[in-house]
Amino acid sequence: MTLGGVEILHDVQISVAPGEVVALMGGNGSGKSTFVRALVGALPLSSGSIEMFGHAPSPADRANLGYVPQRVTASAGVSATAREVVMSGLLGAGRLRPVRDARERAERALTDLGIGALARRDVGTLSGGEQQRVLIARAMVRDPRLVILDEPMAGVDLPSQESLTAALADRKERGAAIVIVLHELGALTRLIDHAVVLERGCVVHVGEPPAALGVHALPGHDHVHPHPDPPERASGPLPMDVTP
């Protein structure tokens, strides 16, 4: 896959079964966020192709997708309530206006994430963790089969992290397939079934998530050293060294 003529991702495949959580990891510039943004249709491709559920994403596939982008987009120029933001999750291809019970469904999704009382608050005045929960409620209100979250714990306070983890555990139990882009595992460790690690746009590890010990627990660590020849090592697990 190329963007602006530059190859960004090379034959990246992620398999995630219903009820499974996969962590997509890698250092800065490894291509993990680019991968999910291209997958959900947020990035136009110069060349290459994207497949979801085994084929090019169709409008029906999009209806089964719940995407949580990075939080920078929670507030905009005009104030909007948390309920309005969550209700926008009920739209899609061929559905330009929300369903009849949209308001009730939005409030239920907010309540599931422990912020039902904030439904009428301006989302721009909420804390980082609360804003993140609103964005997750917007994805979950779609009742998706596949949930993709891009760095959901970035800048999120501890109570919100616990609430987010509980909400994702609940969604996992209900059979959703979940892909989470992460820089480090943190509070989500207990949910992760396996990890896919990217380096320079290639898969370099598929298997057990790297232990969040030693240098791997340090912010800024790239989790993937040393990996001499990334493309050839794509099929097997790599030793996740914990020494610098």
Binding site: R62, T73, A76, A80, S88, L96, R97, R142
Partner: peptide, 23 residues
């Protein structure tokens, strides 16, 4: 006014709107 929900979705968060399949 008629398209307010979807115009809100697109102007509020274009990236998310694309993921939903909105035009």
């Amino acid at each position: 006014i008629g398209l307010r929900p979807s115009l809100f979705a697109v102007t509020h968060d274009q990236e998310f709107a694309r993921s939903t399949g909105l035009p």
